[in-house]
């Protein structure tokens, strides 16, 4: 390894610090998931399996209701497809980065949740440490998610405190990353159009269905916009 590369401990420490907001959110949300699975009659090992293999928050919750109501496999597949399509868009930002990650590539692709995507977009270490930090952020986050799911199933009913509202840390994180990108980018069109289109889609398609149309419209508009900007030759 080249000089100036941080050692493993330093990389893991940097990744851990970056992953703290995800830890707060994932432990809590996946504990809630484990508890709901347990209540529906599926023990912790089912929660663990689902959290390990599917690894996407919202859909795993919907799947509980599907499992207990005996929904058809077609319904389940279609819902998985519609709810998780948004994550295909995330891959577009990391096509080049993940390509160079060798054996870790498939793991990075598998672990790309909303939160991991957001945090990994915010890593601006320009050295080769960047990819190592991204990898550990992904690894830690997936561990939080699995640990929470098991804990929720095993000890969920015994918790004495009320943690309602702790999942706000994810909202806070998105707001902060949004502000960072606002300061970093000279042109605010993508941020503004994202906000406007998301709100319009929320009003039209409703709370459960607006993400995918919003992403499609925003990607379409931004692709057109950046192509036009390129032609005009403006920076």
């Amino acid at each position: 390894m080249s000089d100036g590369k941080r050692n493993n401990m330093q990389v893991m420490k940097a990744a851990f610090l970056k992953s703290i907001p995800i830890m707060c959110s994932y432990l809590f949300v996946s504990m809630a998931y484990g508890m709901m699975m347990e209540n529906a009659g599926y023990h912790w090992y089912y929660s663990l399996l689902a959290s390990m293999t599917i690894y996407t928050g919202a859909f795993q919750f919907v799947l509980i209701t599907f499992l207990s109501s005996g929904a058809s496999i077609i319904t389940i597949m279609l819902t998985a497809f519609l709810m998780n399509s948004r994550q295909a868009f995330y891959s577009l930002s990391f096509l080049d980065v993940f390509r160079d990650m060798g054996k870790r590539k498939l793991y990075m692709i598998h672990t790309m949740t909303d939160e991991t995507y957001a945090v990994n977009c915010s890593i601006d270490d320009n050295t080769e440490n960047k990819k190592d930090i991204m990898f550990f952020v992904a690894l830690f986050s997936r561990c939080y998610w699995m640990i929470g799911a098991v804990l929720g199933g095993v000890i969920g009913q015994l918790l004495p405190f009320d943690l309602e509202g702790i999942d706000f840390c994810m909202t806070a994180l998105f707001v902060i990353i949004f502000m960072d990108q606002w300061e970093k980018n000279k042109n605010h069109f993508p941020a503004v159009i994202g906000l406007i289109i998301a709100i319009i889609c929320l009003l039209i398609f409703g709370q459960t269905a607006f993400m995918l149309p919003a992403l499609i419209f925003v990607s379409g508009i931004l692709m057109f916009w950046s192509g036009k900007k390129q032609k005009e030759g403006s920076g």
Binding site: Y90, L95, L195, I199, L222
Partner: peptide, 25 residues
Amino acid sequence: NRIKRLGEILPSAIMAILIVYCLKD
């Protein structure tokens, strides 16, 4: 090139969408 540029400008738009998602209720 189009996809490359899209990948570069998408994060700030996606952050905006995720914020709306968190506050949708």
